[in-house]
Amino acid sequence: MYGHCGHLAILIRQIAANSFLEVLRLIEYIVFFGLLAAGLLAYIFRSKHDPAPANPRNKCESYIERRLYDALTSRGYEVNTQVPCGKYHIDLALYGPRIAIECDGKTYHSSLEAKARDRRKNRYLKAQGWKVMRFSGRQINGELAKAIERIEQDVR
């Protein structure tokens, strides 16, 4: 009879050990699928807006914008590029003094229609509290120092 109880005790220990391992496996599954669900929910509800690029210079749309951006940043200004304002985008913006800088390339800004569009944009930006400054490609390429001087006068 004692031998029979010994076998029963061994059997009970094996069942307990197996049950413990099953509980551990169940916990592992719960943690794994919980993390998977959290990752999926984070992906679904993430911000739909792209984060700003590491370097705002990358958003410049033309050579003259990059040239003026480089000149201003090298003088210590924090320049934002392609800043949304209503249905428009400001080429280069200095937030502190609220200066909107528009870089007008000859091709895009020389037609009567383009000039009318620029005037509408100027009116809108001014109504939103921006001081608008426009520079032609010729001014940026040939007279960059004068363009920077004009901007710096308005910053003061």
Score class of each variant (00 low, 15 high):
Cys5Tyr: 13
Ile10Ala: 13
Leu11Met: 07
Arg13Glu: 10
Ile15Trp: 08
Ala17Phe: 10
Phe20Glu: 07
Leu21Lys: 12
Leu21Glu: 04
Leu21Cys: 07
Glu22Gly: 13
Glu22Ser: 12
Glu22Asn: 11
Arg25Ala: 11
Leu26Gly: 10
Leu26Met: 06
Ile27Asp: 04
Glu28His: 08
Ile30Asp: 03
Ile30Trp: 05
Ile30Tyr: 08
Phe32Ile: 07
Phe32Val: 07
Phe33Met: 04
Gly34Arg: 03
Gly34Val: 04
Leu36Ala: 11
Ala37Asn: 02
Ala37Leu: 11
Ala38Phe: 05
Leu40Asn: 04
Leu40Phe: 12
Leu41Trp: 06
Ile44Val: 14
Ile44Arg: 08
Ile44Cys: 00
Phe45Pro: 00
Ser47Trp: 01
Ser47Asn: 14
Lys48Ser: 11
Asp50Trp: 06
Asp50Phe: 11
Asp50Gln: 09
Pro51His: 00
Pro53Gly: 11
Asn55Tyr: 06
Pro56Ser: 10
Pro56Asn: 14
Pro56Gln: 09
Arg57Lys: 12
Asn58Leu: 12
Asn58Glu: 14
Cys60Leu: 09
Glu61Lys: 14
Ser62Trp: 02
Ile64Gly: 01
Leu68Trp: 01
Leu68His: 02
Tyr69Ala: 03
Tyr69Asn: 05
Tyr69Ser: 04
Asp70Lys: 01
Asp70Ile: 03
Ala71Asn: 02
Leu72Lys: 02
Thr73Glu: 08
Thr73Cys: 08
Ser74Trp: 00
Arg75Leu: 12
Glu78His: 06
Glu78Met: 10
Asn80Ile: 03
Asn80Ala: 13
Thr81Gly: 07
Cys85Ala: 15
Cys85Thr: 07
Tyr88Cys: 02
His89Lys: 14
His89Tyr: 13
Ile90Trp: 03
Asp91Gln: 05
Asp91His: 04
Tyr95Ala: 10
Arg98Val: 02
Arg98Cys: 12
Ile99Phe: 09
Ile101Val: 13
Cys103His: 05
Cys103Asn: 04
Asp104Tyr: 02
Asp104Asn: 15
Gly105Phe: 01
Lys106Thr: 09
His109Asp: 01
His109Val: 07
Ser111Phe: 00
Leu112Ala: 15
Ala114Ser: 14
Ala116Glu: 15
Arg117His: 15
Asp118Pro: 06
Arg119Ala: 13
Arg120Lys: 15
Arg120Tyr: 06
Lys121Ile: 08
Arg123Tyr: 08
Arg123Cys: 05
Leu125Asn: 05
Lys126Ser: 14
Gln128Gly: 08
Gln128Met: 15
Gly129Met: 06
Val132Ser: 10
Met133His: 09
Arg134Ile: 09
Phe135Lys: 06
Gly137Ile: 01
Arg138Gln: 14
Arg138Ala: 15
Ile140Ser: 03
Leu144Met: 12
Leu144Gln: 00
Leu144Tyr: 01
Ala145Thr: 12
Ala145Met: 07
